[in-house]
Amino acid sequence: MNAIELCGLTKKFGRRTVVDGLTLSVGEGELFALLGVNGAGKSTTIRMLSGVLTPDAGDARIMGASILTELQKVKSVINVSPQETAVAPNLSVFENLVLIFGVYGADKAAAKKAASDSISEFGMAEIQNQRAKTLSGGWQRRLSIAMALITQPKVLFLDEPTLGLDVLARRELWREIEKLRGKMTVVLTTHYLEEAEALSDRIGILVSGRLTAVGTAEELKKRAGKANFEDAFVALATGGTEA
């Protein structure tokens, strides 16, 4: 069974079509990267799939539930780590985790237990009582992802998870993301080519709201006739005009 099925998903802002008839399937347990330059429509796609934005046309099914007609069902099986760190600044790391688990319907005891487990899993014991606003960018990102994972979603959306991080913090986060492979379906948006190539099972290249190519990094390189992924991306994103 596919975890995600997009069928002609479209979003317009005024006259501008930001996502244009996106049709795509992502398998259960797959780590899928949506790759594109700024403004390609990656975040808008994630916002539609997570029920924040309503599509203007088309539909998507997540674990079999429609984002148009069964949104609450969809929301109960997904979680999102937005592009910004999106943590509660005056709450501690522990309290942030308890909050998110509670918001998804857990009782206080279960939320505290899940938060403790998450803190151990993400190696955050030393900072668990620290307020989120005092954490470094890398720790805030890690907390943001832990908050998205604590509800054990079937589908996880990571919107530009390493944006603005230094190389070391990025690599550390990659290791966390790699651990998710096979455990849940992950859709990752990024404009870092090496990130998409290193982490994902398949990559979809999004250009001006349209999906121009989908495949593994090797398949995309072969299709573009290029030896490295950056050249392949440029060729596929520009239709060969910049290659």
Partner: peptide
């Protein structure tokens, strides 16, 4: 306003709230 600007609301909008 801060929850909006720091995307905390965005995270909660995708929750079952």
């Amino acid at each position: 306003a801060r929850d909006r600007s720091e995307a905390f609301l965005l995270r909660l909008y995708s929750s079952p709230l």
